[in-house]
Each structure stands twice: as C-alpha cells, then as structure tokens.
C-alpha cells in the first residue's frame, strides 16, 4: 500500500500534539515560584507589542510625530519593548539557573536564544523605523558594524523602506512562528523536573 502523506501527517500530529499536552489543567506541584511567571509576562508584552504596533502601522510611520494619540501609541509600543526585553532576560536567567535544557529540552533552550536574537533585530529595525534623530544616529553608527562583516550591502540600515518592511512584517512574522514552536516545545516536554538537591544526577543535560 502506498503511503498516504495526508494520513501520515494526521497520525503524526495526533501522536505528537495532544490537547492534554497543549492545554493542561494540571501542572507538577514543584512549579511553585514567581520565576515561572517571566515567560508568560514576556509573551504578554509581545501581545501588547503586536497590538500597539498594528495601530502604529495602520496609520503610517509619520502619524506619531504629529498626533498626540499617535505619540501615546508610540509610548505604549516603546514601553512594551522595554517590558518585553526586561521579562525575556529575567526568563533567560531563570531558565539558566534551573538548567531547564535537561531532559531533551535543548531545542527549547536553543529556540529561546533564536527568539532573543531575532528580537534584537526587531529592536534595531524599530529604532530605524522611528524617522527621527534616533533612527538617523543608530543608522549612521550601526552601518559600520554591518559593513565590517560584509552584510551592509543587503541589510542597509540607511534604507528606510527595507528596515520598515522588516520591522512591521518579516520580523513579527518570524517571532510569532518561533514563539509558537517554543511554546509547543515547552508544552510537549512539560516543565523541567527539579534538579536533585545535591545537584548530582545522571541527566547531565
């Protein structure tokens, strides 16, 4: 019998992604600290980044310079960025201190780092999309770093159109895709088990 790709995909999804895994209503009792909240707070900040960013994108890049309402949405976007990175870094610290890559969770750890890196590009292109002195100065300062590694030609910080497109579509899209993967991995593997009290154990990873 020939392999049916559709059935194979369905079976694979059914086997790997169960609703009990994705949306559990029970968690292990050791999940008992405020440090577990930094991940969801990062995610919540991202929600606000998308909401405020959508409003800013809708009215165009000049709007916030001339409208008090626009300026307020820019402020919300700015402070969402600060909150996003604030909680993301604390989340990173917490996961590091729990050695949360153990038990086959290394791809969760790696995808977290990819998210951090793409978020940094998001921050950079955001500064460049501001169409003010910040954008001007970050552009002329940052271009030397891009040029020095040979990417300044096709990732041109002084090309507003390119930076804006990256910032409002490509990077948010990539972040959403990666966040979905990151969350899926978190749910698939469950919350990492506590380290043995003395730190010794066989699960070196």
């Amino acid at each position: 019998m020939k392999t049916n790709w559709t059935r194979a995909l369905r079976t694979s999804i059914e086997r790997n992604i169960t609703m009990d895994n994705l949306l559990p209503d029970r968690l292990p009792k050791y999940v008992h600290s405020y440090v577990y909240l930094f991940g969801v707070l990062t995610l919540a900040s991202f929600v606000w980044l998308i909401v405020t960013g959508t409003v800013l994108a809708f009215f165009g890049p000049e709007w916030w310079h001339v409208s008090p309402v626009g300026h307020f949405f820019n402020s919300m976007h700015f402070w969402s960025v600060q909150a996003f990175f604030f909680f993301m870094v604390l989340h990173l610290w917490a996961q590091f201190l729990m050695a949360a890559w153990r038990g086959g969770r290394h791809f969760t750890w790696i995808s977290g780092w990819l998210l951090f890196l793409i978020s940094i590009v998001g921050g950079l292109t955001g500064y460049l999309s501001q169409t003010n002195f910040d954008a001007q100065w970050v552009g002329v300062q940052g271009k030397d770093a891009m040029n020095s590694v040979g990417v300044g030609g096709f990732f041109n910080l002084l090309n507003f159109g390119q930076m804006y497109g990256l910032h409002i579509f490509i990077i948010p899209f990539a972040l959403m895709a990666l966040i979905s993967g990151h969350l899926f991995l978190v749910r698939k593997h469950g919350v990492v088990e506590p380290l043995p009290w003395d730190g010794k154990g066989d699960d070196a990873r």
Binding site: H32, V35, Q82, L90
Partner: peptide
C-alpha cells in the same frame, strides 16, 4: 535604573513566597 530593577525584581521573585497552601 532598568538593570537595577531587573536585579530587584528577580531577587524578589526568588525570595517571595508563592501564595497557597503549599
């Protein structure tokens, strides 16, 4: 200030007792 707040918030999250009967 931001970095100071990060350290404070992280320390608080470590030290503060999670509410509940646990």
């Amino acid at each position: 200030v931001v970095v100071g707040l990060m350290l404070v918030v992280f320390a608080l999250a470590l030290i503060m007792r999670w509410p509940g009967e646990h």
